[in-house]
Design a protein around this nucleic acid. Structure first.
Lengths: 252, 252
DNA sequence: AAGTGGTCTAGACCACAAA
DNA sequence: TTGTGGTCTAGACCACTTG
């Protein structure tokens, strides 16, 4: 039992480096794993033991181990302890960015040009794509994303007017529907499908490419708390666009 | 100053629900944000204030706010406090899974069939793809991923033999190169490019599809701590495969 | 039954950035 | 200058799970 005035334990650390302590510990443990010194299945020392080793509180160890677990480098179970995970299944993550922001970042002039715009009651295809009952009022848009005035991608979009009634009168001049929606509706869930298709005559004309050119497609369904917001399919000519993503082990 | 025997503060919580306290707080705060009650730019109460509100320690609040920050729902800065972020840029994340695991999960028989296998010194194309100096010994593989004995995807792979010398003698019978590598080399960094192409005559023959069929391609470069491990391009016939991913606000 | 991780507390010091 | 988040501690209770 402690009854001293207690000023606050150790001086919270000398903090020799700018790096937080839990991160230094995280790096040290991670090194043991990626170097192979601790192979898959190896059991790490328990939290109290590591706390003694590193001379810190158990909570600090917990934070470091939690970070390793977040990255699937270790598996943690009560009683069973913390063990090195098997090499992660070949799985990674691709970030899908906003087209406009991406183009602006690349230093090209961006514009969205609306091609068609119709308010209608959802037909069978609309209902299937958007996931709403047939008859639901929807806004159907087709437009072009332009980079330096050249077609960059073709967008086909359905907006659920029950979820976003104010879209009924919006003309989308000078703003893409995606951006317009984002300024109003923060989505909470999204589903993506990435595929490929050969451009048909209409697509080819709109994108100024040859027929049957292989194109990349991204379809995205967006929800806001159970309610369907929008369905969009974006078509990229393959030779003009690639999705790129790079991943490090997350540096915390 | 406390000098009582101190048994450990409150009984660590009645724990009415199975849910940890920080998570309940996280959910409560998140609701304020996604409901619009706290719009973008709104400043949240400070940590000590929230601790009083929720009747818990500041650290518990910090954990909840940290989770919100991880998901970009709020921005945290010293002195400036915690503010609601602007609706997130249209950006999401696509998981790229291991082909074999995916097919097995779908309940189909999986097999890898090696088509060609060559050890050579990297030519210019190899060097560019794999990111090693020309002349570096590489293993070049072409193979098929089979689902229920039908071609599912075509894989073209280069392996850096300086990084993985034991691949020189491996025959990849009954195991795909990807899986073989994973069992040996945990990668720490990867870069992906997703694109589309029209199948040429060779691809079409190997995949048993018609020429010029639009295909989805995934290229992946893999590093281990600065060293290049492998480059792989996988080609999927568009009508047989789509990449799908769904994202909720991460439930913590 | 016992040991592990999961969570929590009350308090503290510090770094940083805004006022 | 000052208030904020970032980190840390020593200790505690609890839930889970395995031996």
């Amino acid at each position: 039992m402690r009854t001293e005035p207690v000023n606050g334990d150790t001086p919270a650390l000398p903090r020799a480096s700018a790096q937080p302590r839990y991160r230094a510990i995280y790096e040290a443990l991670r090194q043991k794993i990626v170097s192979g010194e601790w192979p898959a299945g190896h059991r790490l020392p328990s939290e109290p033991e590591l706390a003694r080793t590193f001379g810190c509180a158990r909570m600090t160890i917990g934070k470091a181990l939690g970070a390793l677990a977040d990255q699937r480098l270790v598996t943690r179970r009560r009683r069973a302890g913390t063990t090195v995970s098997r090499p992660r299944p070949q799985e990674s993550v691709l970030e899908i960015h906003d087209i406009e922001a991406e183009l602006l970042a690349a230093g090209v002039r961006y514009a969205y040009r609306s091609l068609t715009r119709r308010v209608r009651r959802a037909n069978a295809a609309d209902a299937a794509a958007l996931g709403v009952p047939p008859g639901t009022p929807v806004l159907a848009l087709v437009g072009l994303h332009l980079a330096d005035a050249r077609p960059h991608a073709l967008e086909e979009r359905l907006i659920n007017l029950e979820a976003v009634p104010e879209a009924r009168t919006e003309r989308f001049i000078g703003i893409s529907p995606g951006r317009w929606l984002l300024q109003r509706i923060p989505w909470t869930e999204a589903e993506h499908q990435i595929g490929a298709l050969s451009a048909d005559a209409t697509m080819a004309r709109r994108l100024a490419i040859r027929r049957n050119t292989a194109c990349l497609t991204i379809e995205r369904n967006t929800w806001r708390e159970e309610q369907r917001i929008t369905h969009v399919r974006v078509i990229y000519p393959y030779d003009q666009h690639r999705l790129v993503a790079r991943f490090r082990y997350r540096p915390l």
